[in-house]
Every structure is written in structure tokens, then in C-alpha cells.
């Protein structure tokens, strides 16, 4: 088994499975976050966040998600190092733009930038909501249930800080670029591809990537531009 996980196709298999798992998470996360801009009272988002914070199933999935990120990130550096070693003398001139997409050639750079964003994002919201608390999070009651006012913290962050808003917009776009290649690549890696599905996967990947990029970018924009008023 250990030989499988370090063989070329095995390494990719790990990347693909962890990547697909993260993509499912991203879809759920985006769906929930969009409640931020569909209900300006914040009640819907708060209910969603409360459900995620208290649901027992989510409690089980949360550590697995952390593990998924760790595996994906560690394997990504491992894979890229192995692949980098396979060409000790580099070309003096490379002309690759006609043969492959920029995103496909720069997955580690895109991933690493997403990672930087991720760390800031976790410090920004996750740590405050989960551990340290924050004055803005003070409990409110929605339909008789007491819960943290996550909406207040998130909306205030974007309203008050242009820097953070821009960072979140960039984060969404970077992730979208990562997935414009990553999405279809993960199915190719699993062997779930053929001459009919190749184009289809690639189109679905572009659609998914655009939804992720636009979806995540639109939320800070909404608050930045004062559209909640």
C-alpha cells in the first residue's frame, strides 16, 4: 500500500481524492456563504452557521476536512518536488503557452496562494467563531433559538476593511483558477474519462470554476459597495 501511495499514479490518486473531497466542501461552503447576500437581516446566514456549528455530522466531518487539506497540501509539495527532479537540466527556451493552460502549469503556485489566503481566513473568522470569541459575535435570538451573530462579524469585516475585502476577492479568483484545471484533472486521474467525456469534463470544470470565483468574490463586493443598505 505504501508503495502505491508513492508511485506516480498513486500520488495523483491521493491528490485527486483529496481534491474532490475539498471541492465538495467548497460547494457547500459557497452555498452557505451566499446566504449572506440573499438575506440582509442576516437571519438565514446565522441559522446556517449555527446549524454547521452544532450539527453532530458536521462535527465528525470537520477533522476529516482538516486532514483532507493536510494530505492535499503535503502531497502537492511531494508531487511537485518529484516532478521537478525529473528534469535536472532545464531548457534555455520554453514556449508552452500554445500547448497547455497557464493554470495547469502553475497549480502549486495557485495552491500556495490559496493556502496563504486560507491561513488568513482561518485566523480571521474560524478562530474567532470557534475559540477566542469576538464582541460582534454576541448572541442573538433567531426564531427563539440563541446563536452567535456570525453575520455581524462577517459583514462588519467587509464593510470596514477594503484590504480584507480585496484579499477575499483575490482568494475566490485564485481558487477558481486552481479548479479550472483541478476539477477535470481529478476525474482524468481516476480514469473516469474517455473521448466523449474529455470535453464535457472540461466544460463542467470551467462552469464550476467560474461559479466558485464569482460566488466567493461577489460576497465582499456586495458589502464593499454598500448593496446591503
Amino acid at each position: 500500500m505504501s508503495k502505491f501511495l508513492t508511485a506516480s499514479i498513486g500520488r495523483k490518486f491521493v491528490m485527486s481524492l483529496s481534491g474532490i473531497f475539498l471541492m465538495v466542501f467548497i460547494a457547500v461552503h459557497l452555498g452557505l456563504n451566499l446566504l449572506l447576500i440573499f438575506d440582509d437581516s442576516g437571519e438565514l446566514f446565522n441559522q446556517g452557521a449555527h446549524f454547521m456549528a452544532t450539527n453532530p455530522l458536521v462535527k465528525i466531518v470537520e477533522p476529516i476536512l482538516g486532514l483532507g487539506f493536510m494530505v492535499h497540501i503535503i502531497w502537492s509539495f511531494y508531487i511537485e518536488y518529484q516532478n521537478w527532479k525529473a528534469r535536472p537540466v532545464k531548457y534555455a527556451k520554453r514556449n508552452m503557452s500554445g500547448a497547455s493552460s497557464w493554470a495547469s502549469r502553475n497549480m502549486l503556485i495557485l495552491g500556495s496562494m490559496v493556502l496563504v489566503f486560507l491561513v488568513i481566513h482561518i485566523l480571521d473568522f474560524f478562530v474567532k467563531m470557534k475559540f477566542t470569541g469576538h464582541p460582534l459575535l454576541e448572541e442573538i435570538s433567531v426564531k427563539g433559538v440563541y446563536m452567535e451573530n456570525a453575520y455581524a462579524l462577517v459583514s462588519a469585516t467587509f464593510i470596514n476593511s477594503t484590504v480584507l475585502s480585496v484579499l477575499y476577492i483575490a482568494g475566490g479568483i485564485l481558487l477558481g483558477l486552481h479548479l479550472s484545471h483541478g476539477f477535470w484533472s481529478s476525474f482524468q486521474t481516476l480514469g473516469l474519462n474517455n473521448k466523449f467525456w474529455l470535453k464535457r469534463w472540461q466544460v463542467i470544470a470551467q462552469v464550476y470554476a467560474v461559479i466558485v470565483a464569482v460566488g466567493f468574490a461577489v460576497i465582499p463586493l456586495y458589502f464593499m459597495l454598500g448593496m446591503y443598505k
Binding site: 506516480s8 499514479i9 500520488r11 495523483k12 508531487i79 518529484q82 516532478n83 521537478w84 527532479k85 525529473a86 528534469r87 508552452m96 500554445g98 500547448a99 497547455s100 493552460s101 495547469s104 502549469r105 497549480m107 484545471h181 477535470w184 484533472s185 482524468q188 486521474t189
Partner: peptide
């Protein structure tokens, strides 16, 4: 040899 990351340059 390195591993495949599905860039597709080979086919082109």
C-alpha cells in the same frame, strides 16, 4: 520520469 499532472502539452 516524472508523474502526469494532466496539462495536456504532450498531446499537442
Amino acid at each position: 520520469f516524472g508523474g502526469c499532472t494532466n496539462t495536456g502539452a504532450c498531446e499537442v
